[in-house]
């Protein structure tokens, strides 16, 4: 077996002892085939018993050991040390706690906010079957119906998407990707009866419409779940259910209409259509500051020449939706 000395640079913070967080360096000999988690265990057992991290199943299914490795959120137990070394490189490999969550100690973060958000957003099935008839017979569910929620039910709540989400970075009250994914999973379960109430909660302030489509959740999902697809589907559902009066929905509608009519966005009237008169007035100072910096959207927006091709995309999308 190939062996090599590798350096690890690990985030440390013990609120009882340290005024500020710092980084600790460790250099250990590792064999090819060793995971980051095994390296952490080795450091804890041989060098620094106070090093603090979570780990449980060691098999990539419980989600406990998610940390940021070289800046990317992933599971320590399924990440090979060797994959992070280039050529004959020996690190250092940077290990930090998940982002967007409070650090309790070293690599351990407080995940209660995720639990609270799950609770607030009805992250469960409310079945149609009355309590006293439970267990008597199965719902009949087609394989297609199961497939719709199959990938979403892979979620292990490891928190990687929560840590990577760019919206979470600016607003801790944001609903967050795993909670949106759960809402998608529940709202597309044909046995559930809470769809409307759940969606109303999910589309409230700091909710569904605040997602910026950065796709980081999908990119960094440790179970390769297409989380963004679920978020898109929820937005479509909001329109289908006529939940079009929120700021977010109006904003999306304005984009939809402009692109269909002109092939480009009428930025000048966007605030008015999204936030209404009063809301737009509040944005005036921002608009002025933007103007001073040279950001002046055109007052008149001309239709693009190839508008027919844009409309063809629209009609194909509509046809697709009809099929579904």
């Amino acid at each position: 077996m190939e062996r090599r000395e590798v350096s690890f640079r690990i985030y440390r913070y013990n609120p009882q002892a340290d005024r500020t967080p710092f980084y600790d360096n460790f250099r250990i000999a590792v064999e090819k085939g060793i995971t980051i988690l095994r390296a952490l265990n080795h450091i804890k057992e041989q060098l620094e018993p106070r090093l603090t991290f979570r780990a449980f199943c060691q098999a990539g299914i419980c989600g406990s050991c998610a940390v940021r490795i070289n800046g990317v959120s992933r599971l320590a137990c399924t990440t090979q040390v060797w994959d992070l070394l280039t050529g004959s490189g020996d690190g250092p490999i940077l290990i930090e706690p998940l982002g967007n969550l409070e650090v309790i100690r070293d690599l351990v973060v407080d995940i209660n906010p995720i639990m609270e958000k799950l609770k607030r957003n009805y992250s469960w099935v409310r079945p149609a079957i009355p309590e006293e008839e439970m267990g008597r017979k199965e719902h009949l569910v087609s394989d297609g119906e199961f497939e719709t929620i199959n990938a979403a039910s892979d979620c292990i709540l490891c928190g990687s998407c929560y840590s990577e989400c760019s919206m979470m970075g600016v607003n801790r009250r944001y609903i967050s990707p795993p909670v949106l994914l759960k809402a998608f999973r529940m709202n597309n379960d044909t046995r559930d009866t809470l769809g409307c109430e759940r969606l109303r909660e999910v589309t409230a302030d700091n909710g569904l419409w605040d997602c910026t489509h950065c796709h980081r959740c999908t990119e960094h999902c440790t179970k390769k779940i297409p989380i963004m697809d679920g978020i898109h589907r929820l937005r479509e559902e909001a329109f289908e259910r006529g939940m079009t009066q929120s700021e977010g929905a109006r904003h999306a509608r304005a984009f939809y209409d402009d692109i269909r009519d002109l092939g480009r966005l009428k930025e000048v009237t966007l605030p008015l259509r999204t936030k209404g008169m009063l809301g737009s007035l509040k944005m005036l100072p921002l608009a002025l500051r933007m103007g001073l910096k040279g950001r002046r959207p055109p007052l008149l927006v001309k239709r693009i020449p190839q508008i027919e091709r844009v409309r063809e995309i629209y009609s194909r999308l509509e046809a697709n939706r009809g099929e579904r």
């Binding site: 469960w124 099935v125 079945p127 079957i129 439970m134 267990g135 008597r136 017979k137 199965e138 719902h139 009949l140 569910v141 087609s142 394989d143 199961f146 929620i149 199959n150 039910s153 529940m186 379960d189 046995r191 559930d192």
Partner: peptide, 22 residues
């Protein structure tokens, strides 16, 4: 049988046969 059906009733996803049963 009852406990598995109950779990199903409560929303546990199961793989399905062509006739829609577990």
């Amino acid at each position: 049988p009852a406990v598995v059906r109950e779990l199903e009733n409560l929303g546990a996803p199961f793989s399905r046969f062509a006739d829609g049963t577990i």
